[in-house]
Simulated assay, not measured.
Amino acid sequence: MQPATSDCHGHGVARASGQGVSCVTNPCQHTFNNWGVSAACLRSVFAPTGKTESGESIMLQWLNEVLRSGIGAAVAFVVGWALAELRNWYRIRQMRKRLEQLAGERSAAEAVFIISNREDIRPSVQRYLEQQQKQHLAIFQVHRPELFSDDMEEWHKFLDSVRKEVQQLRQYGPTRVLLFTNVPVAMGISLGALLDNGPEVVIHHYFNGMYRPVARLAQETIKP
């Protein structure tokens, strides 16, 4: 049976231990670390003993512990979030710089590839190049004046011609190819397969009498 608090003669709260009974002058000192308040602690704070100043001090100490822990957790969260955002911003910035560097390197060695069917689009392409001040670029071209029929052999022969021109183009060694074409959609898909695993390809489309770049095929854009 635990001794009563009167064993300490009003100078604390009696606490039983293996060595007998000891008096604890601050009954709250064993509760702060556990985030709990014992009954003795509450009595020492709110009991009408005339020691209001001591009770207020204990309560303020407890509140300070709570606030200190809460503020520390909030600061740690904000700092962690800020560091994560900073890392993401840095990675995006480095990626953009790399893409700009690649764009500059590739623009230094460009070539033009024209693949046309029925209408020869070379004059329109040359006008576009003059407007872009790129009329000095080397031009490679494959043209078929006849329409394609349902004979698969015609399609294969045209693709063979394109494949040979692609080999000549790659021997020239450009880092970027400006592609202009007006072939049927099915042929365009086959051309994409032929031009894969090579230099960057900028695809141009004909809008209202003028060609415009609409897409580009490069390793960093078609592969994750």
Rank of each mutant, 00 (worst) to 15 (best):
M1N: 11
Q2I: 13
A4P: 02
S6N: 14
D7Y: 13
G10P: 03
H11E: 14
G12V: 02
G12R: 04
G12I: 02
A14P: 05
G18I: 07
Q19F: 15
V24T: 10
V24K: 03
T25W: 09
T25K: 06
N26K: 03
P27Q: 06
Q29R: 09
T31H: 03
F32A: 13
N34L: 10
W35V: 07
G36K: 15
S38W: 02
R43N: 14
V45F: 02
A47E: 13
G50M: 10
G55E: 05
E56M: 09
S57G: 12
M59G: 02
L60D: 14
W62H: 13
E65R: 11
E65C: 11
E65A: 12
L67K: 15
R68E: 14
S69G: 01
G70M: 10
G70C: 07
G72F: 02
A74V: 08
A76G: 11
A76Q: 15
V78G: 00
G80M: 05
G80D: 02
W81Y: 04
N88Q: 11
R91A: 03
I92K: 13
Q94S: 12
L99E: 08
E100D: 13
L102M: 03
E105H: 05
S107P: 00
E110N: 14
A111V: 03
F113H: 00
I114A: 00
S116C: 05
I121F: 05
Y128P: 00
Q131C: 05
Q131S: 12
Q131D: 15
Q132I: 08
I139V: 13
Q141H: 11
P145F: 09
L147W: 13
D150T: 12
E153T: 13
S161F: 03
V162P: 00
V162H: 01
Q167L: 09
R170I: 10
T175H: 08
L178T: 04
I189A: 10
N197C: 10
V201F: 03
V201Y: 00
N208W: 09
Y211E: 04
P213C: 06
V214S: 11
R216D: 08
E220V: 07
T221G: 10
I222G: 05
P224F: 08
